[in-house]
């Protein structure tokens, strides 16, 4: 079995070609939250579209630089959830989970934060390398909605940035936060969803079995347990598929971490 590095893994399993110095950013969010506007204003004309391997779902990629780093941003399909019931959700979920982006940015709609936080909380179970971008703050202001961003950031445990992408407001802070998370200079401690007792008990019952697989460095075992309990057939199928890629890549990853 051939050993892979991150670029090779991304290319082979996700059809994404990155330059050696580029850091990978995944851009996720609900539909109608101005995600494409944000993507366009960050990457400008340096974009191209492709297709996810084996899926009829578009894949837009764009690049930008900030300070001394170059970034390749992957615009994931807009979804309400990543519990994966549609091809779009599956693509978004698999990329965040198996593609190991350096940073995942979740775009939320300030005017319906409650529903949008649903997605954010789901993603926070998978990865901790997150930036939460609360977009459309101008619309929220018009609707007299005020958001306490300091408390929100404290509660979430990851950087929160307020933006109005159409007006270009907050884009620099967003880049700064992405940069900090990418180079690891921010302490990240994403809050975890508190489930009802019955769910927690079921997770506890399943965890010892999952820990046998020793993939705790790749995925959050708790999250894997939840997916299994949810009876998520697609995830179970995909984890089988990706375990191969993940183990081929893990060797390089372990070596990199050791250095």
């Amino acid at each position: 079995m051939q050993i892979l590095n991150h670029s090779q893994m991304l290319q082979e399993y996700f059809g994404i070609v990155k330059k050696p110095d580029q850091l990978i950013i995944a851009l996720a969010g609900n539909l109608n939250v101005g995600k494409s506007t944000l993507f366009n204003s960050l990457t400008g004309l340096r974009q191209h579209t492709g297709n996810w391997p084996g899926k009829t779902v578009d894949n837009a990629q764009g690049s930008f630089s900030y300070r001394d780093k170059n970034f390749l941003m992957i615009d994931l399909p807009g979804t309400y959830s990543i519990l994966a019931h549609t091809a779009e959700e599956e693509v978004a979920r698999d990329f965040i989970c198996f593609g190991h982006p350096d940073v995942t940015v979740i775009v939320l709609d300030a005017t319906s934060l409650e529903r949008n936080l649903n997605l954010a909380l789901q993603v926070m179970e998978i990865t901790s390398r997150l930036v939460i971008c609360v977009n459309l703050i101008d619309e929220a202001k018009k609707k007299k909605i005020s958001i306490d961003f300091i408390t929100l950031e404290k509660e979430l445990g990851v950087p929160v940035v307020a933006t109005a992408a159409r007006q270009g407001i907050g884009l620099n802070s967003l880049k700064e936060s992405i940069y900090q998370v990418a180079i690891g200079s921010r302490e990240l401690n994403p809050t975890q969803i508190k489930y009802s007792m019955e769910v927690e008990n079921a997770v506890l019952k399943l965890l010892p079995q999952i820990e046998k697989f020793r993939f705790d460095k790749l995925f959050n075992p708790r999250w894997v347990a939840l997916r299994l309990l949810d009876g998520d057939e697609k995830f179970i199928r995909n984890i089988t598929l990706h375990l191969n890629s993940q183990s081929r890549w893990a060797v390089t990853r372990e070596a990199e971490i050791a250095l």
Binding site: Y80, L83, H85, R115
Partner: peptide, 11 residues
């Protein structure tokens, strides 16, 4: 089926 989840995803 799919509609149940779709509806749940919308809260």
């Amino acid at each position: 089926g799919i509609l149940r989840r779709r509806i749940q995803d919308l809260g």
